[in-house]
Design a protein around this nucleic acid. Structure first.
Lengths: 221, 221
DNA sequence: GCATTTTTAGAGTGATTACTCTAAAAAGTC
DNA sequence: GACTTTTTAGAGTAATCACTCTAAAAATGC
């Protein structure tokens, strides 16, 4: 594999494990047993590494968020979307961990990210319209944008939420399993809009993603 | 005013304006025309300043999130809760801007924050139960925790969302007016649970917090 | 007015880190 | 094998920043 790719892979891994801020370019180089000069031969600066990783992430997400044109959506699609999106978020989790800082320091990334956001939001809205067309949801057009936006917020904030509110301080073990609770919360957003025909089925499905009860029960505290 | 208070006030202002990370302790001192030594006489370290500011924030929020015991909740309460919470978020907006980093570097704050979170979540759930008891919402007990959690996520992520997705890169002018859209989104979460008696009234109320349409419409992009 | 405590100034320090510079090694070309 | 280009090494640098240290000034108590 080319040095450039190895730098990107190592950066991604270190960023994900430790957070972008805690990983110096020298650390990336020494992790790969190459010199800082070598790293800077391939990338003009740290931001360029992050930008390339974002492009990977973007491609991955947009690839998932396609709405089929030849058939109507099913509940299976819904689950598949969410699992794939959360898997992508997991793979590039350093991004949303510190998005504000990354964007503040990088105007080019900021512009691209905002375009990406608008694109995603439109796709999510299209998916919701597709679910409505398939009589899975019953929702007014005027509510679709709001629901799509809430979905975006919950999805992109989920890992941050976990790390801040549910993980012990010394415990860095954010695991893919913890994704499940995020999927549950997104189902929760859509649940009230389910048509009677699908309500029973979805409720049962949603239960599979139920967060462990000791987590978040408000009744006993 | 005591030097200690002046340090806290100046820190809050600078943190809010520039982000905690971009504000050095030396910068706080020189902003107040005092020496770094003086600052460190009053606070052992930067984290201690942040911790004290968090305590202020916590007290402010918990003061707002009271459920009246002598009467049932009204729609006016609902609006008042949201406006007061968002005002508090605004006043201490540096906190949620970089919460993960702040907590990672400060175990004591992390523990306190998690306790605060659980407390808030329970209060939000109580408010939802109160709204159900007042026949404003119709919601199953088993859905309350999930709705409360989504409310927490949307509320605490709103400013971050604005800065990442809606503000121009050179534009630091996050304004209190932009809060309104956050309130709209929280209404959006609860809207499907409204009883018929209140649906009309709330929908009209919600419209007042409507984000400007060019913002987030998915229909024209 | 003297003694003690509290508050302040301000120079300095050690650690970190993104990035540079020079030159050597390796790879490719003919 | 001579050359050109690409890739690499690694020492170094300038800036930043949280925090320390010493000693002077100010406030307080009696």
């Amino acid at each position: 594999m080319s040095t450039k790719q190895r730098i990107l892979d190592a950066s991604l891994q270190l960023f994900n494990d430790l957070g972008e801020r805690k990983v110096s370019t020298n650390a990336i180089a020494s992790h790969l047993d190459i010199s800082p000069g070598n790293l800077y031969y391939h990338f003009n600066n740290k931001q360029a590494i992050i930008y390339q990783l974002f492009l990977r992430y973007e491609a991955r997400v947009l690839d998932v968020l396609q709405v089929p044109t030849d058939r109507s959506l099913t509940i299976t699609d819904k689950v598949r979307y969410l699992q794939a999106i959360f898997a992508g978020l997991w793979e590039y989790r350093f991004l949303h961990r510190d998005m504000e800082h990354l964007l503040h320091d990088n105007a080019e990334l900021h512009a691209r990210y905002q375009q990406f956001f608008r694109h995603c939001l439109a796709r999510v809205a299209d998916i919701l319209r597709g679910l409505a067309a398939a009589h899975i949801l019953r929702i007014d057009e005027q509510d679709i944008d709001g629901l799509a936006l809430n979905t975006w917020i919950v999805v992109t904030s989920w890992f941050s939420f976990l790390r801040c509110n549910l993980l012990q301080h010394d415990d860095d073990s954010l695991s893919p399993e913890l994704l499940q609770g995020g999927i549950y919360q997104v189902f929760m957003l859509e649940q009230p809009y389910l048509t009677d025909a699908y309500r029973e089925h979805m409720t049962q499905l949603q239960r599979q993603f139920m967060p462990r009860p000791e987590w978040l029960s408000t009744t006993q505290s």
